[in-house]
Design a protein around this nucleic acid. Structure first.
Length: 318
DNA sequence: TGGATTTGACCGCC
DNA sequence: GGCGGTCAAATCCA
């Protein structure tokens, strides 16, 4: 059916090339620090306003006896306030409106994961935390939608630099989106240009695709990989019209047939990259292992309609 | 001065 | 108990 129509060429790209090519508007991002800190994704408010800086609060160190006392005192104050509040409510302990527990449970049931480069995605994000993750070379940054307070948007994302090249190879990032936006994009013309959405119901369950993906989007899933994708396109984006993906379909690695010996290994050479002009506004998938693949590359290399790049190899979808 | 980032402490889950 | 996610005071900057 769609075998006559070629719509995809997948590539492995170095991250710097990707970022360079994907900044289809004057870059609002600042360069990653030499310390390996995560590059603030474009769209983060800071990058627009240019504000914000360093050094967090001087917090109490656990080893400090005085701090222990102070913390205890603060805890007592909290307890006292709680007692007052409880008293005001007929001595009935009021359930906290939104505990961490409830928040996390909400997230796990509705979480979506998207992988893409830390590029502008049409939304403004505010960084609310950074954490050094066990086994990770670089810290993970936590962002929430700036509309989380005004519009109650639950969207969050984490950005983690995941290259371990010792500085020689290109920078690679893993971006995870949690929950979907309930707010409006700040720039609809570019908003969902590059978005890969994955719904993960649980770590051991198959991953469901997101309903927002259009019929032309393939869904790729894996029971072991932490990357399952269902592409979305913005209203202003040129959608593929020549493909007929079932938006609900999924595949697993076992269902994928490897196309051996094709050109996709080793990235795009400079000559090929030079052929690409203008913004690449296509979904760019960053696998957990650092591999990349793209939909809708501007070049059509004649791959079959139902092929993808999976774990660095061209795979055929059934 | 307001808004955004930084960063260590806090907290819940596994 | 360890780890990851979140909080929030401190800080920075336009």
């Amino acid at each position: 059916m769609e075998s006559e129509a070629y719509w995809r060429m997948s590539r492995e790209l170095e991250a710097d090339e990707l970022q360079h090519l994907l900044f289809f508007r004057p870059s609002l991002t600042q360069q990653a620090t030499s310390s390996g800190e995560c590059l603030p994704p474009a769209g983060v408010t800071k990058t627009v306003s240019g504000g914000g800086r360093r050094r967090g609060r001087k917090r109490l160190r656990p080893a400090d006896n005085n701090n222990v006392k102070l913390r205890r005192r603060l805890q007592e104050e909290d307890d006292h306030l709680q007692e007052v509040a409880d008293g005001a409510a007929n001595s009935k302990p009021l359930p906290r409106p939104c505990t961490k527990t409830s928040r996390r449970k909400q997230q796990t049931t509705t979480s979506t994961m998207v992988t893409t480069v830390p590029d502008f995605d049409g939304y403004q994000w505010r960084k609310y935390g950074q954490k050094q993750i066990e086994g990770a070379k670089y810290p993970r940054s936590y962002y929430r939608c700036t509309n989380s307070t005004e519009q109650g948007c639950q969207a969050k994302k984490t950005v983690q630099r995941n290259d371990d090249d010792g500085g020689a190879a290109a920078t690679r990032y893993t971006v995870s989106y949690i929950s979907e936006h309930t707010c409006k994009s700040i720039n609809e013309s570019v908003a969902p240009v590059i978005l890969e959405t994955t719904v993960r119901t649980s770590t051991n369950q198959p991953i469901a695709t997101v309903g927002s993906c259009s019929a032309e989007s393939p869904a790729i899933s894996s029971t072991t990989s932490d990357i399952i994708t269902a592409s979305t396109w913005s209203s202003g984006e040129t959608s593929r019209s020549d493909c007929s993906w079932d938006s609900t379909s999924t595949i697993t690695p076992a269902m994928a047939t490897n196309y051996s010996g094709n050109i996709i290994n080793g990235g795009v050479d400079v000559e090929e990259m030079d052929l690409i002009r203008g913004p690449i506004r296509s979904p760019v998938h960053i696998m957990a292992d650092g591999n990349y693949w793209m939909d809708d590359l501007l070049l059509n290399n004649g791959f079959m309609d139902d092929t993808i790049l999976f774990n660095g190899s061209i795979c055929q979808l059934f």
